[in-house]
Design a binder for these strands. Structure first.
Lengths: 265, 265
DNA sequence: ACCTGAACACCGTTCAAGT
DNA sequence: ACCTGAACACCGTTCAAGT
């Protein structure tokens, strides 16, 4: 493995994946001759665990090192900077939906309608963003061209190719669907996390936020209007309503794709 | 104005807007009796300026104080925490697309087709996210229920009400459109920023990232497939292609809405 | 090759004190 | 009412030194 901080002068690098070289492999040299049993994979796994448990804001190299029973500076042997490590964690999370191994769930015989598969992939991406709320910040901040993220992108591209859209249409549709899911999962993930850390149910927290908004007199009237709308939509918990909205939005996107295909553009 | 850090015990507050009280007003007491001319509005404006110039990562209370020619701790008289200040900056940015003042551009006589207005609002939101790349992180992290953000949300709700969708459909469509724009603008804004800070053109940076991805042998083939696709889409700079994708996605979303309306659901 | 300790230049925030 | 200075408990990262 290379201490990596060799590139001198040069414009500042902005991603582990640019001029990196087998980032996760750990140098290729077999197992356990290391004093503390450290390697990139173990460090990355610990990072993901800590990010899940305590959030991006509280994560630090020193906190991580403590978790690994090691000095803060040991980690720097395996990783150039904190940002590089976060990029590794980002890609590690994407491995969870990486369709490299189709698994027994999707019986390999049926090729499945693209509509079904779109719903499945979108749902998996949404679930990933909610399960790892820190992922959204990182996916937005970094280039996100690690192997697993790319694998995911390619799966999406293969899927969208089966819609019958033109080449240009495929790119636009891909963007419409998965940027939507990104936005939706981002907001949902952070909301869930904020409720948890405030020790409130999602419904209680939602009600509290609504009260705060309606305290502003100018907004009150306008928001009341949308309260009517909310009532007209039927009841349900915040979570149920969110699930319905997500499902409807996907239906809308699928209908949009079908219409664009029919229009031949 | 109240030193604010009065709420004792209590579950930790998670937003300036919850139990706040006229956050931007500055206490209501007229102009300039303050030694340093400081107030919330001035502090918030300086925050936005610094975030634009140096990014969220480099922003600090001490850096801000220096910019205001004041001790770091002076700011804490007007603001409880750094997070509260960031929420104020977030809402201040949303004021830029707040449609409170329709302006001379949209002649008040024509009520405009909802399709046109949707394109206008979506375009304005996208531009805002690209102009202030830090905004996306904050909008995702915080509740985003400041007065200007709410104003924007309500404008979107009014717009979507004119589509003819059912109440439930309106919420789903709103989500589909504006979460898409959020995702799109987030990625675009960060990409633009990263290119600038690496001192490269968007096209050069894109080519460099592509080369890095295609170095991985397993991915090479798959990515080459999408290179064909890219060629088939016709040429153009990264920016032109992005504009086309955005426009197509909006067309797709509008077509989807129309279809759902026709289906009566 | 891998790990440590001390050090540098930073953070956000509290608190007692000034005017 | 508003602002300051010193202090506390942190950061990411460098560097020389250990084994």
């Amino acid at each position: 493995m290379v201490r990596a901080a060799e590139r001198d002068g040069h414009p500042p690098r902005t991603s582990v994946w640019l001029e990196g070289g087998a980032p996760l492999a750990g140098g290729g040299r077999g197992g356990g001759s290391r004093p503390s049993g450290l390697d990139r994979a173990r460090i990355t796994a610990a990072t993901v665990r800590l990010l899940d448990a305590e959030g991006l804001a509280k994560f630090s190299m020193r906190r991580l090192a403590a978790d690994l029973n090691v000095t803060a500076m040991s980690v720097y042997w395996y990783v150039d900077t904190k940002d590089d490590l976060l990029e590794l964690a980002l890609d590690a999370a994407f491995a969870e939906i990486s369709p490299a191994d189709p698994g027994p769930a999707s019986a390999s015989a049926t090729p499945a309608d693209w509509r079904e598969e779109l719903r499945a992939l979108a749902g998996a991406y949404r679930a990933l963003l909610v399960r790892h709320p820190w992922l959204s910040s990182l996916a937005g901040t970094f280039l996100n061209i690690g192997p697993h993220a790319v694998e995911f992108q390619l799966a999406v591209q293969r899927l969208v190719r089966r819609t019958g859209l033109s080449a240009g249409g495929q790119a636009g549709a891909l963007s419409a669907v998965f940027q939507f899911v990104y936005g939706f999962g981002t907001v949902e993930g952070h909301f869930v996390q904020r409720c948890a850390s405030a020790g409130m149910s999602q419904d209680d927290y939602y009600r509290r936020a609504m009260r705060a908004v309606t305290r502003e007199p100018e907004l009150r009237e306008a928001v009341d209007g949308s309260a009517d709308l909310r009532r007209a939509r039927g009841d349900g918990t915040v979570e149920e309503i969110r699930d319905r909205d997500f499902a409807f939005a996907l239906d809308l996107l699928i209908a949009g794709i079908e219409t664009m295909v029919r229009r031949g553009e």
